[in-house]
Every structure is written in C-alpha cells, then in structure tokens.
Simulated assay, not measured.
Amino acid sequence: MLIKECKGFELEKEQSNTSEDFFNRSIVTFSEDGEEKTLHVLYVRYFDEFLHEFTPYKQDPIMVQDNNEVSFKDIVALVCLLKNPGLRSRKRLYINSKQEFASYFQDINYNKLPEIFLSLNQKKEYELRSPLEFIMQPK
C-alpha cells in the first residue's frame, strides 16, 4: 500500500442550523493494487482535548519536521487505517464515542509515525509494507 496524503481539518458551519463546527475530519489517501482510495474519518472535535490520555503527545501540533507541522487531526485517519486494515475497503468512518476513538490509539508505535510524514514531505508518498510495523507487539 502506498500512502499519498494524511491531513485533517476542522469543519465549519455551512448553515446556521447544523452542528458541523463540533467535528473534525481526518483523511488518508492511499493507493492499493493501482487503485487510489481515500478514507474519511469524522470525529467529535472534543476528543482532541484528550489526546494526552491515549497518545504520548502533550500538545498540538504533535510534531514539527523541516518546518512542517503535523497536527493531531492529521494522524487520526492514518492511525485508524493502521489499527484496522479492514478500513481499506471503506470510504467513511464516523466516531462519536470517546472509548471507540481511544481504542484506535492503543498499542500504536508512535516512534515510527514520524517516518511516514517525513517520507510524505520529501517523496510525496510512503510505502507501507505492513500495518503491523506500527503496532506494538506484546513482549
């Protein structure tokens, strides 16, 4: 699988009677078997306030590489895809439970995430051989 892009953003109200401004969208675009796909993860923005509870990150942006900031929103869809490779066949995922959201971040090897973003910044792609490389294995 070739990862092409990881980014996230805050949704804004398009109409006064909608609740879009309570949500964030994170996307990961990847190519598999010659087909380009994008997974959109929509989640409650409030969960960003708890990133320190289920990740080692203490603030946002979570990392800075070559003057490029990577925010928490940028990694959410990627982490979901790494944790559940079955999501490759989905276009959208909606998470409104803090418990479900936190479960995606359990056992992720956060030390390896920067190499994905470094490759995306330099080569505009990252070859993911196995999602298991990013999951901590029990000792």
Rank of each mutant, 00 (worst) to 15 (best):
L2G: 03
I3N: 02
K4R: 11
K4I: 07
C6W: 00
C6D: 09
C6A: 14
K7I: 05
G8P: 10
F9Y: 15
F9L: 12
E10M: 08
E10D: 11
L11H: 07
E12Q: 14
E14D: 08
E14Y: 07
E14A: 12
E14C: 08
Q15Y: 14
Q15N: 13
Q15C: 13
Q15W: 09
S16H: 11
N17W: 11
T18K: 12
S19K: 10
D21N: 10
F23M: 01
F23N: 06
N24I: 04
N24C: 14
S26A: 06
S26Q: 05
I27Y: 02
I27T: 13
V28L: 02
T29W: 00
T29H: 05
T29E: 09
D33M: 05
G34C: 02
E36F: 00
K37L: 01
T38D: 04
H40C: 08
H40F: 09
L42K: 10
Y43N: 10
Y43Q: 07
Y43E: 12
Y46D: 15
F47Q: 04
D48S: 15
D48V: 03
F50C: 07
F50H: 14
E53L: 06
F54D: 11
T55I: 08
P56W: 04
I62K: 01
V64G: 06
Q65K: 05
D66F: 08
D66K: 07
N67T: 07
N67W: 06
N68F: 12
E69A: 09
E69D: 10
E69C: 09
E69K: 08
V70L: 02
V70E: 02
S71M: 00
S71R: 02
S71P: 00
K73F: 03
K73A: 13
D74G: 05
I75F: 05
I75R: 05
V76S: 01
V76L: 04
V76N: 03
L78Y: 01
C80T: 02
L81I: 06
K83Y: 01
N84M: 07
N84D: 13
N84E: 14
P85A: 07
G86Y: 07
L87E: 00
R88A: 14
R88Q: 14
S89G: 12
S89N: 15
K91P: 03
K91D: 14
Y94N: 11
I95T: 10
I95C: 13
N96G: 13
N96A: 14
S97Y: 02
S97G: 11
S97W: 05
Q99R: 14
Q99E: 15
Q99I: 14
Q106M: 06
Q106K: 14
N109F: 01
N109W: 00
Y110R: 01
K112M: 07
K112L: 14
L113A: 02
P114M: 12
P114K: 02
E115L: 09
F117I: 06
F117D: 06
L118Y: 04
L120T: 02
L120D: 00
N121W: 02
Q122E: 11
K123R: 13
K123E: 09
K124C: 03
E125F: 01
R129S: 14
S130V: 04
S130A: 15
P131A: 06
P131F: 12
E133S: 11
F134G: 05
F134A: 07
M136Y: 03
P138Q: 13
